[in-house]
């Protein structure tokens, strides 16, 4: 035990060479893990969509959408969701070339980051010019603010995550785990984009 302890202090070279930590194992778990995590994440949004339809059906105190509340402007919502979809698409394309052409992947990732940051920027703009108050706006306003804030928070975290993929998409990087990880991350962003599209249809048109 003590011998091992001394070896693992500092740089764990010996453990690093253990076969279970070889990168192809990571490549194999990242995809499955991401699918499960996407399922969990979807349930988070399912709760918000449930809140939308439940409160809308109840229309308590005739206050689902009261006279102070109107749908926010559709074109801004549309821009936000388009940027999100573009971001997801760019990451997926980048992940496809991550193994063979890291520099191409990096370019795609940078563009995706740009789209994602712009998406967050427009979202902040929309929140600032909402036209209703979450306190006075009734059930609709609550669900709108809640769902969109959570989605935006996830996009912000995803953009930091994307930063790690940009930094790691280098020619000397490894060619097994990183592309698999990028592909899994692309799946996650596609899911977020899907939530964004559904949220757009639900929140702006119903």
């Amino acid at each position: 035990m003590s011998q091992q302890s001394q070896q693992s202090r500092g740089l764990p070279n010996l453990v690093a060479s253990a076969p279970e930590w070889s990168t192809d194992v990571d490549a194999r778990v990242s995809s499955v893990g991401m699918w499960i995590f996407m399922g969990a994440n979807a349930m988070l949004f399912v709760a918000f969509f449930f809140a939308f339809f439940y409160l809308r059906a109840l229309n308590n105190a005739d206050n689902w959408m009261n006279i102070w509340t109107v749908h926010p402007r559709r074109y801004i919502g549309g821009i936000i969701v388009l940027l999100l979809v573009a971001c997801a698409g760019l990451v997926v394309m980048g992940a496809r070339s991550a193994a063979k052409a890291p520099s191409t992947a990096r370019m795609f990732f940078w563009l995706a980051l740009l789209a994602g940051v712009l998406c967050c920027g427009f979202q902040v703009y929309e929140f600032k010019h909402l036209g209703f108050d979450p306190q006075m706006g009734g059930g609709y306003a609550s669900v709108f603010v809640g769902l969109k804030s959570v989605l935006m928070a996830e996009i912000v975290v995803a953009m930091i995550w994307l930063g790690t993929h940009i930094a790691q998409a280098t020619p000397i990087g490894d060619t097994t785990a990183r592309p698999a990880s990028a592909a899994a991350f692309g799946n996650f962003l596609v899911m977020l984009a899907g939530v964004g599209v559904v949220a757009y249809l639900v929140l702006y048109f119903i």
């Binding site: 969990a40 994440n41 349930m43 988070l44 949004f45 399912v46 709760a47 918000f48 809140a51 439940y54 409160l55 109840l58 229309n59 308590n60 105190a61 206050n63 689902w64 009261n66 979450p134 306190q135 006075m136 706006g137 009734g138 059930g139 609709y140 306003a141 609550s142 669900v143 603010v145 809640g146 804030s149 959570v150």
Partner: peptide
């Protein structure tokens, strides 16, 4: 995650003054 979402709604109700769970204001 369902619990997390519900707790986020509670948090918003208590800070941003949303009305997810206040029936007089359109929640339930």
């Amino acid at each position: 995650p369902i619990l997390a979402a519900a707790l986020i709604m509670q948090g918003f109700d208590r800070t941003l003054n949303t009305t997810f769970f206040i029936s007089s204001a359109g929640g339930s």
